[in-house]
Amino acid sequence: MRHLRPEQIYAFLEGELTDGERRDIETHTAECAACRKALDERKTLEAAWTALTPYDVPPDFASTVMRRISTQPRPKVWTWIVAGLSALGALSVVVFGALGLVGTVQVSLVTGLNRSLFGLFSHSLVLGVKILKTAATVLSLTGDLVARLLAGFSTLILSFSDEIAALAALALVLSGLLAYGLRKRYLPGE
């Protein structure tokens, strides 16, 4: 057997080798003074650095942290609100900024948007009334709503020019990334 490599020695000391590998190392170190010395040395080092002196914790550390915590509400909801509003803001800026630049398709876009939103609103009202009337029709009405939503979105998307459609897609991607980034920023452990 050739001389042991340092990573073999550490793996041996950390108990990461198979029984066979361990036996090989034990046999080799029994015969090889240089490797035995290398093993002993790293064994001493391992013992030393796994027993480094702990840092002193001030006795009032926990109470100081808890005092700071007591002055802050736990932001369970606001992180989502901030991230959502920021993303919405970014989306609006990009879409309306692009509209301002392109200009000519504003009317068709706004008309399509209005039509879709109005359609969504009116159909939602109808759906709400129907749900109250009978639970049996809920499934079919939901299907109806989805179909109308899809139809509304289709109308909206068809009213886009290619440039606006591309910009809207870009804006959606950017706002998604922004929302993700903000969530990472505010929820650091994720």
Binding site: V65, R74, K76, G189
Partner: peptide, 22 residues
């Protein structure tokens, strides 16, 4: 040391604030 203590406090604060994401 002082900076470590301050950081440790900050880490606990961050953990507390984002505990719902754990």
């Amino acid at each position: 040391r002082e900076q470590s203590l301050e950081f440790a406090q900050d880490v606990f604060m961050k953990a507390y604030s984002s505990l719902n994401s754990y």
